[in-house]
Amino acid sequence: MPADRSAAALRDPAWMRGLLIATALAFLALFLLLPLVAVFAEALRRGVAAYWAALVEEDAVAAIKLTLIVAVFSVPANLVFGVAASWCVAKFDFRGKNLLITLIDLPFSVSPVISGLIYVLLFGLNGLMGPFLKAQGIQIIFAVPGLVLATIFVTFPFVARELIPLMQEQGSEEEEAALVLGASGWQTFWRVTLPNIKWGLLYGVLLCNARAMGEFGAVSVVSGHIRGYTNTMPLHVEILYNEYNFVAAFAVASVLAMLALVTLVAKTVLEWRFGAELAATRHK
């Protein structure tokens, strides 16, 4: 939370504040709010009844379920990884640390087309491990495991990226104190570190989850697009759109947008309720 700045010399003049706020709001309105409004406007064009009908339709429900299943597997996996990675990056100094951080960032910059393709090259029938897996009757791509793997790849850096700067900034003094006083490593982590990073962690998880549910490009490559079976919500949106069923397409899309908004509002509410505590951990 921003500290209270009462000194007049530290304040921007009113005209500048107004100008900057106006600029920021105009920019956000143009780039974020308008597309969002467009999604809801299209979704509700034929009224609430049509909107609702599109959401309770069988394939839409299947897509929503599948999306949740994928998120349930991929988000915790990246949560554990993010905590482990930020622990070793923030608490220790070692050679190749910049390289490690760069590798963690890498999935951000890999094109979604490629993130799907690599799993096809690995697990596809002509891939490195495909023939072996086929012989065992194990299906990875064009089934749930492939969707989970591609989603994990795409959302890989989110938790780690959120935690690393936070833990670097907090330093290791409290952990050192706990250890000197005789706490075990795990105790230190659960009692000292976790309470300090919980907001950053929560935030990272929320972003990771939002992205996991919304990913389109990578899962599109490994899905197989079997209606009602391997279509996640973003893929179902594309299908409906291609069927010229614009209302239903945008209705499902609006659920994803709402999901995003709900998680973000939840985050905001938590921050607001525990704002003081949060500020305290931030400035420790």
Partner: peptide, 18 residues
Amino acid sequence: KQSHGGSGKQARSVIDGL
């Protein structure tokens, strides 16, 4: 069960094990 998409992409999925 039905799967639809661009013709080439669909053929590729079958080649890759769909």
